[in-house]
Design a protein around this nucleic acid. Structure first.
Lengths: 133, 133, 133, 133
DNA sequence: GTGGTCTAGACCACC
DNA sequence: GTGGTCTAGACCACC
């Protein structure tokens, strides 16, 4: 698989699957139109319950990341620019995380510029690099 | 109070209290050595369950943000450079959030540079601005 | 063909075929007594699984829209006033959809009158217009 | 309860619960800010599994019909005008149902005007009347 | 084969 | 008390 899941984290497993696929797509491991393992296949591969995987796939479909075709399988959707409300919701989420970063940064004595460099570096490493930074 | 709490948000209330205090400290509303209202005081002031407040205070103490001195009260801890393990934990958290930002950014078509600008702007606004950006 | 089918929609394909034929008949593209392609012909023409097409034809026959004459082929049935039970079933379906419309309308703030106008307009456009409104 | 559920219908149970609540709200049986029975309560009352009820509540929250407050309960959300994309999606659904009605109407020999009258009548009866028309 | 639903029952976080 | 998640296993519709 393109990612791993850790049941001991507080993040729900199905959410980790959702995040894992988004990451795999951004990194280019999976591409538009690609067929995704079936719900049951992935469940077996990752030793998860099929309901958990199905929940993740359904959420990814709601987010327009996957396209589920009944009786045929699940595919990576073609990219569509998000609706305004979708965009707003995502931007708000991003801004909130940026504030959190700034606050956490304060406690490890990272200045704004330090954080900017770390950000650049993180993206670099991560785009080229492996699954886990 | 220096912050507000919204029970309708999915973020747990105790977490909002934790974040609220950290934010107040970074913004300078509360300073090192300042006395913080007791659990029961704050619970009354903000009409929260005192268990919820207690949980927040415990977490803030665990993170060395608060210092609880038995019989005297709760204070904002003096700043100490974090232990290595603390620092590592916080850095890991920051890096993870940065990755999330990059992924979310992908879906609203924000490039690395767009994100950098947004980051700078967010911090600017937030530092000068009020509690809610 | 007189209609198209989209496997990406949540509506089952066989149902889309059923709806497509009904629509074609109401619009007059196909008339009473017209011969309809055989299951296998249509399956080839539209690149569908023949089981899917067969299921649609069976349902259309059950609803007295098609008439399958053994050894001769499938035809658009001549119009017969429906039996009482048929009529009741269809009316119940119609009433239920009308309620659904009213409820959905509520959430987009459409009044009864708005819905009536929309209904009139929809029929107008649809009767004159093409396959997809 | 304000509605009943029929496990033998093809419509999934959780969807029937969703529709049932929307109907109850439009009819005014339940009002903005009202507390809804807890997931487990409703499950017991209607002899359903709590997972099924939870799924319905979650969908209603996604549609901004319910508001779920962690640890406190579930409430009828205040009405907010939908986003443009939400509105478009709902309108498309309405238009599609109207076309279906027109087609079905054809088979019971109901003219456009007949359908209009039936629509008016349906809403009248249903708004004043009981749970099942 | 594909995904979707449902029940039963356990466990958890939050207030 | 509240809702959320997860597994196990059954059953179903669709292609």
């Amino acid at each position: 698989m393109w990612f791993r899941v850790n049941p001991r984290l507080p993040t729900p497993i199905y959410q980790q699957v959702v995040d894992g696929f988004k990451e795999a797509i951004v990194k280019g491991f999976v591409k538009q139109g690609d067929r995704i393992p079936s719900v049951r296949e992935l469940a077996t591969l990752m030793t998860l319950n099929h309901n958990t995987v199905a929940k993740a796939y359904q959420q990814l479909e709601r987010e327009h990341v996957f396209e589920i075709i009944q009786g045929r399988g699940t595919f990576v959707a073609e990219f569509k620019p998000p609706s305004d409300s979708d965009r707003d919701r995502r931007l708000a989420k991003i801004v909130e995380m940026m504030q959190q970063i700034y606050i956490e940064g304060h406690y490890v004595q990272l200045s704004e510029d330090d954080l900017m460099s770390l950000f650049r570096e993180t993206i670099r490493k991560w785009e080229t690099g492996g699954k886990d930074v």
